[in-house]
C-alpha cells in the first residue's frame, strides 16, 4: 500500500511538472507583448522593451519556464504582473471560497446519491424509474441553467438566500451557510444525478452476488446485509465516480462563482486569464492540478480501505 501511494504521489508530481510546462508554453504565445498592455498604447517603445526585459520576457520560453520552476519548487510563485500582489496571498484569500463550495458539494453528493441510489436499487419499480428519469434529466441539464433557475426561485422569488456575495466562515457561520447553500445546491444537481446512477448500478450488481444470498441464509437481518455488506462492496466504483465528479466540479465552479459573485478560484481564473497574468494563472493551474492529484490519491486510499483486494494492486 505504501509503495503504491508513493508511486501515485510520484506520478502526481510528474503530472504537475508536465502541466506546468504545457500551460507556460501555451500562455507565452498570446501574451508576448505584456509590456505594452501594462504601460498603455501611448508609452514609448523603449519603455515597453525595458518593462518586458524586467519581466524576463526577452528571453526564450524555456529559459523563462526554468526561472519560474526554480522559484516555484522553493514555494515562490512570484507576483502578479498587473497588481503586484503576491500570488500565494492572492490564492490564499480565494481558495477557502472554492474549497467550501467544492467540499460542500462533494459531501452533499456523497450522502444524497448514496441514499437515492440504494433506495432505487432496493425498491425497484416506480421509485427506481423516478430516480432514473430524474438523474438523466439532472445529468443532462446544463449547469448554468440549473444555477439560474435556483437563483431565480430561491433568491429572487422566495428571498430565502442572498443571490450574490460571500461571507467568510470565520466572520459568521450562519452568513457563510446562507451564501454557500445556493451555489452548493446548484452544483450538486448534476453531481448527485451522476453518482446516484453509479450507486444504483453497483448496488444492483452486488445484490446479485452469491455472498449476499449466503449472508441472508445465515439469518442476518436484511437491513444489516444491505448497509454493512452490499453498500460497502458497492462503494468502490461509486467513490471513483465521485472523484471524477470532483474534478469536474473545479470546472463547474468557474461558472457558478461568476453567477453568484463568489470571490473564489473560478472567478479569479476568468479574471486573470483574460488579462494574461502569467504568474497568477500558473499559480491557479498548479493549485487546481494539485487538488485533483490529492483527491485521486484520497479516492485510492479510501477504495483500499473499503476493499482489501484493491490494496495489493
Amino acid at each position: 500500500m505504501l509503495t503504491f501511494l508513493a508511486r501515485r504521489l510520484g506520478a502526481g508530481i510528474l503530472l504537475l511538472l508536465v502541466i506546468s510546462l504545457l500551460t507556460f508554453v501555451l500562455l507565452s504565445i498570446p501574451h508576448a507583448d505584456v509590456g505594452r498592455a501594462l504601460l498603455g498604447q501611448s508609452a514609448p517603445q523603449a519603455a515597453v522593451d525595458a518593462k518586458n526585459a524586467s519581466l524576463g520576457l526577452d528571453r526564450s520560453v524555456l529559459a523563462q519556464y526554468g526561472d519560474w520552476l526554480s522559484h516555484a519548487v522553493r514555494g515562490d510563485l512570484g507576483r502578479s504582473w498587473f497588481t503586484g500582489e503576491d500570488v500565494w496571498s492572492a490564492l490564499g484569500t480565494r481558495l477557502p471560497v472554492t474549497l467550501s463550495l467544492v467540499v460542500g458539494v462533494t459531501l452533499v453528493t456523497a450522502v444524497l446519491s448514496l441514499l437515492l441510489g440504494v433506495w432505487a436499487a432496493v425498491r425497484g419499480g416506480l421509485v427506481d424509474r423516478c430516480v432514473q428519469v430524474l438523474s438523466v434529466v439532472g445529468y443532462a441539464l446544463p449547469g448554468f441553467l440549473v444555477t439560474l433557475v435556483v437563483v431565480l426561485v430561491f433568491a429572487v422569488r422566495l428571498g430565502w438566500f442572498p443571490a450574490i456575495g460571500y461571507i467568510p466562515f470565520t466572520q459568521s457561520v450562519s452568513g457563510w451557510l446562507s451564501t454557500i447553500t445556493l451555489p452548493v445546491a446548484a452544483l450538486s444537481v448534476g453531481a448527485v444525478a451522476g453518482v446516484a446512477q453509479q450507486v444504483r448500478g453497483s448496488v444492483l450488481d452486488v445484490l446479485q452476488r452469491d455472498f449476499v444470498r449466503t449472508l441472508r441464509a445465515r439469518g442476518l437481518p436484511p437491513g444489516r446485509v444491505l448497509f454493512r455488506h452490499v453498500v460497502r462492496n458497492a462503494s468502490a466504483p461509486a467513490l471513483t465516480v465521485l472523484g471524477l465528479q470532483f474534478v469536474g466540479l473545479l470546472g463547474g465552479a468557474v461558472l457558478v462563482e461568476q453567477i453568484f459573485g463568489l470571490p473564489g478560484i473560478g472567478s479569479m481564473t476568468v479574471q486573470y486569464t483574460t488579462r494574461g497574468d502569467v504568474p497568477v494563472i500558473m499559480g491557479l493551474v498548479m493549485v487546481s492540478v494539485a487538488g485533483v492529484v490529492v483527491v485521486n490519491l484520497l479516492v485510492d486510499v479510501l477504495v483500499g480501505v473499503l476493499n482489501p483486494k484493491a490494496r495489493v494492486a
Binding site: D210, A217, R218, K309
Partner: peptide, 14 residues
Amino acid sequence: AYVPQEPMSNLDPT
C-alpha cells in the same frame, strides 16, 4: 443452514 456451491464468491471480499 446453507452451504453454497461456489466457495470463493460466497464470502464477502471486504
